[in-house]
Nucleic acid binder design. Sequence first.
DNA 1: CAACCGACCTGTTCGC
DNA 2: TGCGAACAGGTCGGTT
Length: 282
Amino acid sequence: MPELPEVEVIARKLRSELLGRSFVDVEVLWARSIAAPDVAAFVALMQGARIDDVTRRGKYIVMRLADDWTMLAHLRMSGKFRVSAPLAPAEDSYARVRWRLDDGRSLLFCDPRKFGRLHLSRSPETLLDKLGPEPLADAFTPAALGERLRNRRGEIKRLLLDQHFVAGVGNIYASEALWRAQIHPQRVAGSLSEPEVQRLHAGVVSTLAQAIEHGGTSLADRQYVLPDGETGQHQEALAVYAREGDPCPRCAAPVLRIVQGQRSTYFCATCQVLKGNVPHHR
DNA sequence: CAACCGACCTGTTCGC
DNA sequence: TGCGAACAGGTCGGTT
């Protein structure tokens, strides 16, 4: 469910709510939510741990604890964090992990589909270093993107979903970025021209940045909600995602849906023409 | 690499 | 109304 913008907004919210707080204790209600270490060690290490920072890398929430421990949280499809008020234990029935905070509130990790995972580690970089570049970092330039695209023979949309290629882009923003760049989702990644690489870079960066400004995308099913129950607003700005048959905001042709890698892709066949699908060997 | 599959899970929507 | 199929914002591991 959440992609880079949603995870960024959640991490900022958790940071503002939890910085400097400590965990009194933790209760693990679904053992497999804990990827590492084992549940007993996870529980023991959490006792009294102080939260020193909350940031994001790719789709991971990175919670720095005192004594050099870090909790990495990946929400996958349906994970959510909730911070509950002191006297309002509005327990989410999908709570998988529950912490008590030293101010009386609780932090809940809720996850209907049980795909989400929490990792407690002293060397989170082992995991995070496997991710591709951060698309909103200064180092992610059009030239750097072009370099990574070189000789890649797969379809560009599928490549954008590969977290080793670039971190944080998911199914919504891959379609949106390609629409902004006016690039067909089935283009061979390594076949993009210099101007197309420029446009793709701008499309990825602008769509992610704008989605963060809008507080993320909360589709009709409201899977994505912030730790305080708020929703994002970017769904109103989506050009093509989940809009099959609707008019393209740029040219009014109907938005199409195709399947790539067993996942839906939305695009405008008029604005995003399939051409030049020959790999460059620069 | 790439294409494809199943696995991991539960809930909602859609077609008949 | 009921019921099964299809689908959902993600990723991993395995096979060909």
